[in-house]
């Protein structure tokens, strides 16, 4: 397991860097959606980069492995899409770009893996050329639907609670992936999780109800990438991956009666509470499974016979 002290320092740095960057950029323009989006995006990028630097994770070039492709292709593409979305005047075009990045992320992460390529000779790929596009399309569709549903919720009930719920899910996903035999991916996930959390706290104080799709898009791309890496390269179970993928949608329960009658603050609390509950269950199950399978071969239930036992045998 990675050093907990190093992880804690990285998380604190990501949180502070993101919160400070967001605050500096949004301080005088707190009611401007464009400046709030800029704060989210730059805060996320700064917090993630500094957290990863602190933890000592350096991507390799060329990006032959999934984690290198996450750090050098997927996350930079998600950040670039947010910058492009700020410039683009047409909102649907910005959303097409976000969905393109998110939809393609699983394909990029699985590139040249044994799922998609004949690495051990002809016909050895795990997904046949016929089934692979279907699986990738299924993953991309689910990811995109989750992101759109979260954005709809953020539009319906503006505030930072959705971003905080996503940060909690990201944190839970990182821990679960770490406990599922892929420590590096879990370590990588901690920095963006705390970067989203830092900006969310700053946004809750400064930006109030100024809308922005940036935290939803950046959080959704990171979450889906972590789950794809954990599921297909580590030992993350399909159930845990699905529960974590859909956990942020639990925030929608606050919009249905009778909870919908409550005020904005109690509903925000319910959103965060429900998501936290699901994430906590998944993490605790992963921790239990880790503890059960980590010990070595079972000891014999009967005590080992001593030398005296052998000498006295038959007397």
């Amino acid at each position: 397991m990675p050093d907990p002290l190093v992880m804690f320092k990285a998380m604190a740095l990501a949180f502070l860097a993101s919160a400070c960057t967001f605050s500096l950029l949004v301080w005088r323009k707190r009611s401007s959606p464009a400046w709030v989006s800029l704060g989210w995006t730059v805060g996320f990028a700064a917090g993630t980069a500094l957290g990863l630097w602190q933890i000592g994770i350096r991507p390799s070039w060329p990006p032959l492995e999934d984690r290198d492709r996450l750090l050098l292709l997927v996350l930079p593409a998600a950040v670039a899409a947010e910058f492009a979305a700020m410039v683009l005047s047409r909102k649907p075009l910005a959303w097409l770009l976000r969905l393109f990045v998110l939809g393609l992320s699983a394909r990029v992460l699985l590139h040249q893996s044994s799922y998609l390529a004949d690495l051990s000779g002809p016909g050895t790929r795990e997904w046949s050329p016929r089934t692979a596009p279907g699986i990738l399309a299924g993953i991309a569709t689910a990811q995109c639907l989750i992101m759109v549903a979260l954005d709809r919720l953020a539009t319906r009930a503006p505030g930072a609670s959705h971003a905080l719920a996503l940060a909690i899910t990201l944190l839970g996903a990182s821990l679960t992936v770490m406990l599922s035999g892929y420590a590096t991916a879990g370590e990588i996930g901690l920095s963006p999780a705390l970067a989203v959390a830092g900006a969310a706290i700053a946004a809750g104080i400064l930006a109030g109800r100024t809308p922005s799709s940036a935290p939803i898009a950046l959080g959704a791309v990171t979450l889906s990438a972590l789950l794809v890496m954990g599921r297909f390269f580590g030992q993350l179970s399909t159930t845990a991956a699905l529960l974590l993928a859909f956990a942020p949608l639990a925030a929608w329960f606050g919009e249905f009666p009778p909870l919908a009658r409550l005020g904005p603050r109690p509903r925000a609390g319910i959103r965060i509470g429900l998501v936290t509950l699901i994430v906590a269950v998944v993490v605790s199950l992963a921790a239990q499974n880790f503890a059960q399978t980590s010990h070595g071969p079972a000891q014999s239930p009967t005590p080992e016979p001593s030398l005296e036992d052998y000498l006295n045998y038959g007397r």
Partner: peptide, 30 residues
Amino acid sequence: VKPESIDTANAKRDEHLKSPDFFNVKQFPT
């Protein structure tokens, strides 16, 4: 050699060794 077949007499450790933390058997299966 197939790194997927690594055997150190501890299933949990073998799973970890197969992951991208070590051999990354899904990316480099031989």
